[in-house]
Amino acid sequence: MSPQPGEIALRAIELRKDYPMNGETVHALRGVSLEVRRGEYVAIVGPSGSGKSTLLQLLGGLDEPSAGSVLVDGVALAGLDDRTLTRLRLTRLGFVFQRFHLLPVLTAIENVELPLSEAGVSRAERRARALELLGYVGLAERAAHRATQLSGGEMQRVAIARALANRPAVILADEPTGELDAATGRSMLELFRRLNQDGTTLVVITHDEHLAAEAGRVVHMLDGRIAVGRQG
C-alpha cells in the first residue's frame, strides 16, 4: 500500500541541533518543525549559517538531532539501528549534493547502478533501470564515460539519476546549482520541474532565486529557525 498524494512524506518536529565549539555551544537549529507532503516541491532559503544544511542532514538521517524528531514516510528515525537507517536512506531517500560526489573510478552508468546493486537488484535489471534514468536526465549517450570525464552539469545530472535509482519518497538536494554556471543552472531548474511534475517530492536548499521561484513553497530560515513559510 503506497502513500497517496497529500500524505506527509517528511516531517520534522521541534528539531534542535547543538554543536560544541571551543567550549561554547553553537545552536545550529533552535526548534524547527516542517511538514513536506507527498508530491510537494519545497525550497529552503536563508543566509549562510542559518542552519539549512544542518536541517537537511537531519531530515536525511545523516546525523542525529540534539532534540526533536524526524519521520520519513511515517517512520521515526530516532532509535533506528544503523543498518535499518542506512537501508531507509537507500530506499526512501535520494541525496543530491552541491559537489555531486560521484565515484570517480566508476562510469556514469555504474554510479547510477551503485545504489541499485546495494539494494540487491539483479545485474540486468539495474543496467536497464540505470540506462532509463540516464535517458531521463538526458545523458544516455554519456553512460560509459568516467565520472571525471563529465562536465559539472553532466555530473549533477548523473547524481540526480543516482538519487532517483531506488524510487525514493523524497529527494533532498543541498544547493544543487551551487557549482554550476547560470545556463547550466537554468537547465537544472527544468529538470527539477520535470521531476516534480512526474511526482517526485523535492526538498531543495538554494541561494538561487530562480530555483526558489520554481518551488511550490519556500521556507525561509534565519538563525536556526524558520522565519516565514509561504504557501505557493
Partner: peptide
C-alpha cells in the same frame, strides 16, 4: 573518507 561518507549517505551499508 569523503567518498566513503557519500556512499554511506546514499545508503551503502557499513558491511559493504
Amino acid at each position: 573518507l569523503g567518498e566513503i561518507a557519500t556512499l554511506r549517505a546514499i545508503g551503502v551499508s557499513r558491511a559493504t
